[in-house]
Design a protein around this nucleic acid. Structure first.
Lengths: 199, 199
DNA sequence: ACCTGAACACCGTTCAAGT
DNA sequence: ACCTGAACACCGTTCAAGT
């Protein structure tokens, strides 16, 4: 008959604590001790479920992005425009995934579109995907423009810029990284979005 | 009549030690204790001359890159700061190449660092490279900061952002693209640089 | 002015010991 | 199987004390 988090396993307690902390401050450090103590769990237990700090952060990333329902988000004007746009970009990154998924994804992209001699077909196939993503991004930017949150301007260009940033982040998810990846990804997303939204 | 480093002041001893260590392994950590002990100096003394670890690393960078003449570009103050920074980023992208070279390069990166299960060695190897690039970028930013072209701020964060953009552009060079890539790359570089330099 | 080294408040990871 | 918490080997920074 518990009404707190007592029924949760340690793993979930840790995850809940980490996500809460991330929610409170997306730039937070999420150190072992900070998260463990917030979760009411020992550092050893945290390590048992997440053998490395990076694994914890990856899991947090996945969960966070799963929660975000996106397209609604861009219309929710109670939230600052920059947060909404960052949320949308995060949604794009969700599909990239983390860990093995991110690495497999990048491997496939390279196998399919980079390694082979670029035929007409391949070219067209990739461009179709790329255009799809850009359209989506442009749509989000349009919403913000109509709302007055984003000055009139070349939204295609802006979208291309944001896509490049997301591509860079996606690649970095597949590559080895320091374990502060969660924090620096947030930094970069906000930097890019602020850049587009202007002063 | 000393023939060792005995005549050097502590500050120089520290600098010499740090630069030697950097020379031996550009991926080295250059921690307070490691450098101080190598220099035969107390941590307190090191701190006296370099109030912060960042200041030490910046000084090392400056000395190192002042030796390497390749970066004349960043020092040429007859050119606007943004153009110089974009030039430097282009220099990084030069190594990525275009066409077949870019595709081969990306394939190799993926083969080497993405596809295999990430061992400790691989991880360290990649991080060393990454850190090297970031240091270089930070150095460029420091030059602009000292010059007054760039407000004081977190240059590490700025460097990370620019690296992500360059990573994105590199990936896009390897992928199929519309033929306006040159133009959109320039757009993106300037957007990113302006974003960093501020209004 | 310059230098020392201990102390502080942190890291992430490991591990013997418990249940 | 899961969890504990101490211990380890590191960080960067501060500071009273010396010369």
């Amino acid at each position: 008959m518990e009404h707190d988090t007592g029924e949760l396993g340690s793993r979930d307690k840790v995850l809940l604590a980490a996500m809460t902390m991330f929610g409170e401050d997306p730039g937070a450090r999420l150190s072992v001790r900070a998260v463990a103590s917030r979760a009411g769990v020992s550092t050893g237990s945290l390590r048992y479920h997440f053998p490395t700090q990076r694994e914890l952060q990856d899991e947090v990333l996945t969960r966070i992005y799963d929660l975000v329902v996106t397209d609604e988000r861009i219309h929710d004007s109670t939230v600052p425009a920059r947060d909404r746009l960052v949320g949308c970009l995060r949604q794009v990154l969700t599909r990239v995934g983390v860990g093995t998924q991110a690495r497999d994804g990048m491997r496939k992209v390279v196998e399919e579109f980079v390694a082979p001699e670029p035929t007409e077909e391949l070219h067209a196939a990739y461009l179709a995907i790329e255009r799809e993503v850009r359209r989506r991004l442009e749509y989000w930017l349009t919403v913000l423009t109509n709302e007055g949150a984003l000055p009139d301007g070349d939204n295609t260009r802006r979208a291309r810029f944001l896509i490049t940033v997301v591509n860079g982040l996606g690649l970095e998810r597949a590559l080895p990284a320091e374990d502060s990846i969660l924090q620096s990804e947030t930094d970069t997303l906000y930097t890019a979005v602020d850049c587009v939204l202007g002063p």
